[in-house]
């Protein structure tokens, strides 16, 4: 399934709302994405950082997985 810009905006909103009391986490997520955009980090690097940042938030991890290319996903502990 192809995700659209609206899906990305909606996901970013979800992250922002979740960490409304701790906006540093939302800003860190934006920083990770900026570093990916500027190619400072690659896809596995993003996966590594995001899995640490969203540890304990399996719904956010699953939402993020939807943006990953085939063959990549962050495992959610059961």
């Amino acid at each position: 399934q192809k995700l659209k810009v609206e899906d990305a905006l909606s996901y970013l909103d979800q992250v922002k709302i979740r960490f409304a009391n701790d906006p540093g986490i939302y800003n860190k997520f934006l920083d990770i994405m900026k570093e990916f955009k500027s190619q400072s980090i690659d896809t596995p690097g993003v996966i590594n950082r995001v899995s640490q940042l969203f540890h304990g938030h399996p719904d956010l991890v699953l939402g993020f997985n939807a943006f990953l290319p085939p063959g990549y996903r962050i495992e959610v502990p059961k």
Partner: peptide, 20 residues
């Protein structure tokens, strides 16, 4: 680039960050 959807998310995040 091998991760077009992730690039799209990164682009949207960059715009969002610039606006806030």
């Amino acid at each position: 680039l091998p991760a077009p959807q992730l690039v799209m998310l990164a682009n949207v995040a960059a715009v969002t960050a610039a606006e806030s």
